[in-house]
Design a protein around this nucleic acid. Sequence first.
DNA 1: ATGGCAGAGTGGCTCTGA
Length: 269
Amino acid sequence: MRIATWNINGVKARIGALVDWLERESPDVVLLQEIKSVDEAFPRDTIEGLGYNVETHGQKGFNGVAILSKRPLEDVVRGLPGGEGDDQARWIEATVMGDSHAVRVCGLYLPNGNPVDFGADGAPQRTGKYGYKLDWMDRLAARAAALLAAEMPAVMAGDYNVIPQREDAARPAAWEKDALFLPESRAAFRRILNMGFTEAFRARVEGPGHYSFWDYQAGAWDKNDGIRIDHLLLTPQAADLMTDVGIMRDERGREKPSDHVPVWVDLAA
DNA sequence: ATGGCAGAGTGGCTCTGA
């Protein structure tokens, strides 16, 4: 079972690229972020015509997540628990029945967190968008703990907006004051890994030069000035089923691309 | 060396993102 995550930066703008990619790669499950669409405007019929079941959690203008799956999706939940008053559409989960295992798949679009307010002492303040990011990561850790306690194959995948290590950025120095790379963001990400999750890509590939995002600005793609911020985190039961992982880098070089590319994992499920 | 973008919603620009 191939499970892919992709921040498509607008489903309306990306429908051509999305259909082309689904036809070419035919992943079993796709977790989409930044659909930038309300549920009613999502091109459901087009995707269903390619043989996918579709579940969306959208909103007007920005954010929005979705799950596409060739197999039926069960027990769909929209919204990350613990977010009373949080109306941003950033989380959706469902269960997919594989040939041998049921897999809980969770799609997430973690808040960017910029701009960051720095105090007089130069320390980042837990306020505004950065505070929202860290609060959201606390809620994510709570959901992650519950998934671990269920002791079943589960995947939390999406745009984490976190650069885990220096090797995950072409120019790490440029990100040192950025919400994606501040120590608190990285610690919150590491805290989830330390609970017992396996970051699929780094379980199999080491070294620098592997990115999932290149900014549209400043010729970032041409210079390979990228960062790795799209991740798949696996429970131990899912990690035991992992057979392969990859980043579909070439998608960034196609016509009218998203600024992110798909990242995927194969599970023997 | 440096600057450079793109999408959505609204209305001809602002907000948002990373």
